[in-house]
Simulated scan of single mutants.
Amino acid sequence: PIKNISILSGNVIATFIAGFMNILVMVYGGKYLFHIDWGKSDIGVLLLLGAFIFTITCLGLFISSFFKTQQQLSSIVPVITVSTSMLGGCMWPLEIIQSKTLLFIANLTPQKWALEGIKDMIMYGHGIESIVTPVLVLLLMGIIYLALGIRFINASK
């Protein structure tokens, strides 16, 4: 008998590792094959993207706790992904948004914090110190999503 927490932790860890491996290929493949400039600190970029992957993985666990079948989950994930990406500034810059409500909601999306850190490091040339707040916020979001996901999955059993 394996506890639910062990199974869920194993799934989160395996998903995180797979996502991080993809990021490694993207960052270093882009750097050496396509000469993409990732800013002053590759480690900072990887740290920020690692925190983002952790948060998104835990968000996926949280969202999956509400659905009973894979088809239900796969039908709602694109809606959540696109809408949070829009709100987080991935589709257009948040600087053009005037609504205080939308800007507040943007602060609740992981995409906003990851994009803010990436912009600071790559576009504006800041060092690794510029990502401390985004990384901490992403890790906090991830921990909250993980705790809620585990709680709701355990409650549904």
Rank of each mutant, 00 (worst) to 15 (best):
I2V: 11
I2S: 06
I2P: 04
K3R: 10
K3E: 09
K3W: 00
K3D: 09
N4Q: 07
N4A: 08
N4L: 13
N4F: 01
I5P: 01
I5Y: 12
S6G: 07
S6K: 10
I7C: 07
I7E: 04
I7T: 12
I7S: 12
L8G: 00
L8V: 13
L8T: 02
L8R: 03
L8M: 14
S9R: 07
S9C: 07
S9P: 01
S9D: 02
S9H: 02
G10Q: 04
G10Y: 02
G10S: 13
N11R: 13
N11L: 10
N11P: 00
N11Y: 06
V12C: 11
V12E: 09
V12S: 07
V12A: 13
V12M: 12
V12D: 06
I13N: 04
I13Y: 08
I13R: 05
I13F: 15
A14V: 08
A14T: 13
A14C: 02
A14P: 00
T15Y: 01
T15P: 01
F16T: 03
F16W: 14
F16I: 14
I17Q: 05
I17V: 15
I17D: 05
I17N: 04
A18E: 08
A18R: 10
A18C: 09
A18Q: 09
A18W: 06
A18T: 11
G19T: 10
G19N: 15
G19P: 10
G19D: 05
F20R: 00
M21Q: 03
N22M: 13
I23H: 02
L24G: 15
L24R: 05
L24I: 12
V25W: 02
M26F: 14
M26D: 06
M26R: 05
V27Y: 08
V27N: 10
V27I: 15
G29E: 07
G29M: 09
G30N: 10
G30Q: 11
G30M: 11
G30T: 11
K31Y: 06
K31D: 07
K31R: 13
K31G: 03
K31C: 03
Y32V: 03
Y32Q: 07
Y32D: 04
L33D: 00
L33H: 01
L33K: 02
L33P: 00
F34A: 14
F34M: 14
F34E: 03
F34I: 07
F34G: 00
F34T: 01
H35Q: 15
H35L: 09
H35M: 11
H35I: 06
I36W: 04
I36M: 11
D37S: 14
W38I: 03
W38D: 02
W38S: 01
G39D: 08
G39S: 08
G39R: 04
G39A: 06
G39L: 05
G39M: 08
K40I: 12
K40F: 07
K40Y: 11
S41V: 11
S41R: 10
S41P: 08
S41N: 10
D42K: 03
D42Q: 09
D42V: 09
D42M: 06
D42R: 03
D42T: 13
I43N: 05
G44T: 01
G44K: 01
G44E: 04
G44Q: 05
V45C: 06
V45M: 12
L46P: 01
